[in-house]
Design a protein around this nucleic acid. Sequence first.
DNA 1: AATATTTGGTGTATTTTAAACAATAACCTT
DNA 2: AAGGTTATTGTTTAAAATACACCAAATATT
Lengths: 229, 229
Amino acid sequence: MSEVDSFFKSAFSVDNVIFGFDGGDLKVLLIQRGAPPYKGKWALPGDLVYPNEDIDTAAERVLEQLTGLKGVYLEQVKAFGAVNRHPLGRVITIAYYSLVKTNDFQPTPASFAQSAQWHSVGTVEELAFDHNQILQSCLTQLKQKVRIAPIGFELLPPKFTLTELQHLYEAILETELDKRNFRKKILSMNVLHDLDEIQAGVAHRPAKLYQFDQERYTRFLEEGYTFDV
Amino acid sequence: MSEVDSFFKSAFSVDNVIFGFDGGDLKVLLIQRGAPPYKGKWALPGDLVYPNEDIDTAAERVLEQLTGLKGVYLEQVKAFGAVNRHPLGRVITIAYYSLVKTNDFQPTPASFAQSAQWHSVGTVEELAFDHNQILQSCLTQLKQKVRIAPIGFELLPPKFTLTELQHLYEAILETELDKRNFRKKILSMNVLHDLDEIQAGVAHRPAKLYQFDQERYTRFLEEGYTFDV
DNA sequence: AATATTTGGTGTATTTTAAACAATAACCTT
DNA sequence: AAGGTTATTGTTTAAAATACACCAAATATT
């Protein structure tokens, strides 16, 4: 018997934990299911993987259906494959998380969803399937990764202030950071470009705007350094 | 159309990167495939997941078939799901790695294998499927994990010397460590139990034997410390 | 028995990194 | 002009990482 003869009725899906940041809380984009099972429940956006589709591509597709965005930061976390995780059949799912700028789009509910909304990660209710567990895994992975790779910038607009950046890290890491030490550390890595611009429209001293500089980061790596917050 | 109606011909498997250590090199247990595709090629041990089997259970089963071992350290890494990764159909695979003591068993080739042998991780040849890529991912993950969790001990016999432990870390991390600093660091964490025994049968000054002490490690964590090599 | 060989075991000084901490500057509002 | 609010900056201290060399204890050799 060859391996392919023993295929059985089964499927695989991708689920995507889409993270966003609004300046205060870390957010996750959830959909409200429009069909059973778990109709009406909040869930992670996901879909079955098409026969001729790489799993990474499927995750990109789910993201684009909901946000219209392409080319955003997307990373696989792991597979979830308990026998009874899906009430209607054997479906294992591959979990991904992605980082988007909330101002870049308005969520448009995909075919499988009644609505799509941002939820604060800290106060997410009970979700469909094993999605709370998936969210937790993705969050854990994000927390680790954001400290050793310059991916936090994906959640901010192209131009940002150091205080905004600090608040982002504080939201993700769920900790408070010392302002002076944070700025020292970030600036010493020399991966930010000082735009010589300042904030407009604030009722106080405006802050300088910075940009993440990919070329500087490449040089930073070439010199043997590692990103570390 | 419900989700389960759209199931298509597909399957999922698990592949297991079984790591071992012989005092010198980090090893991986490979099987030689006994059936097409890739008949005769070296590959990671793996199998299709049974319909009523959790994916973690499938990985444990593959491990036990080959080694006879149960209750071994086993961790999922990620899924691999490129469309054409399997020449005979759509098969995504979930990669696991496990850590075993090479002296605990003799590899017994499973049904799907002609033979099973330890290979040095550094000199692994071209493997079947995308198994080189899977091995690489698991190795990367092991390197990260072994520094922040006390899992290296899983590769050593219950009683070991500090030099053996150091050589293990050097093999995994592919770096040289300073003897005095290494011993200072490990012993200062206070998770090893000094057995008051010494090596026998060596042609030089015998070293003291130690044991990893789970209770001490639990206490270590409770006091807010984190394992770090 | 003496000597050689091999690996085990130990401490200190230096450098680097992390942490704690507060005053002045710049802009806006009233 | 005064008051409110956030931005910006440096030093001191503690902790951690790194670099580094000699003596001890066993077996093997002569």
